[in-house]
Computed example of a mutant assay.
Amino acid sequence: MKKDISGDRFAIQFWGVRGSIPSPGPTTLRYGGNTSCIEMRIGGKRLIFDGGTGLRLLGKSLSPSLEEEIYMFFTHYHWDHIQGLPFFFPSFDEESRFIIHGQVPDEGEPMKMARHFRDRVLHLNSPIPIAQIRAQMKFHDLVCGELFTLDDIAIETAPLNHPNGAMGYRISWGGHTAVYCTDTEQFPDRLDENVLHLARDADILIYDAMYTDEEYHNPKTPKVGWGHSTWQEGVRVCQAAGVKRLVVFHHDPNHSDDFLDNVAIEVEAALPGSVLAKEGMILHLDRLNDE
């Protein structure tokens, strides 16, 4: 049965919350082991951000043939953000309609999003024959820093500090704002101005907090330069930018449920109202204070 989104004013559902590589197993059941994928249902439209392995679960919740268009957005194209695409059920139905947004990485060869998506994102190593993907696809080439609209939904973008580049999104509708800012690393001497600009006065910031400060700066296993941040940095961004709620996202695949439970306690103490993303979790921005 097709998921009815007519009653959702501004709802965000988390389908994959893990970073880098899927991490299934008994120690990750409560938070989930699938990689990055979130769905925003806003004013009758369905927006999907990133296509990690969580996208497969999202596809299973939908009718194979959808009446409405699906708007897809990519932060970047590392495998943990695209691995679910060949397993997204609506892509095999010729009646499905996707409008795909993203920026082609600067690799020396000028390329439009349509070619990049077919040649490099739908990878030849996929176990599913790519020729069987029959959905109707349109493409929107984004330029980082631009502001564009989907009817009355305003979407702003900004570059993030990540190997090979990544892009953050600020989505505003009906007086509410959500910021999706994953796969980014702060600078040693300052908070990233691009992240602060995206996050300004937002209702929620979905933030790459893959590590703790202690892990990030551990001299024996340093994570500096890996392109990811910490939950403590997320708290600092929220405090500096006036964000109402932090959502800790892109969990380290080595972090167990018990480890993340302890992080949740520390995050709540540092910034009351903050939460850790879990697979299946739904946040309604129009009634955020009631959840």
Rank of each mutant, 00 (worst) to 15 (best):
I204C: 06
D203H: 04
G7F: 07
G33Q: 10
G280R: 07
P163W: 09
S36L: 14
C37Y: 03
P253I: 08
L205E: 11
S65C: 11
I5R: 08
G168Q: 05
M40A: 09
N161E: 14
A241W: 10
D152V: 00
M210H: 12
A135K: 00
K112W: 07
D50C: 13
A114D: 05
G280Q: 10
I282E: 15
N262G: 12
V275G: 00
R287T: 13
H197N: 15
Q83L: 12
V104N: 11
L285G: 05
D119G: 00
E109S: 06
A158T: 09
G145K: 07
V275R: 09
G25A: 07
H217A: 07
K223W: 10
S6A: 14
L58H: 08
A158Q: 13
D80Q: 13
H140D: 01
P64N: 10
A135W: 01
L271R: 02
M72I: 09
T212W: 06
K138E: 14
I12D: 02
D257P: 00
A158G: 11
A178S: 07
G19E: 15
R170T: 02
E109R: 05
D119K: 01
I155E: 02
F73Q: 11
A11R: 08
P110L: 09
E268V: 01
M1A: 11
P219L: 09
E95D: 12
H140I: 03
V247A: 02
M167T: 14
F148H: 08
I265S: 05
F98I: 02
G54E: 11
S65A: 14
W226Q: 15
P163S: 12
G175C: 08
D4E: 13
I100P: 00
L58K: 03
S91D: 11
G242N: 04
L57Q: 13
G225T: 15
L285I: 04
E107A: 06
F74Y: 14
Y71E: 14
T212V: 03
A277K: 03
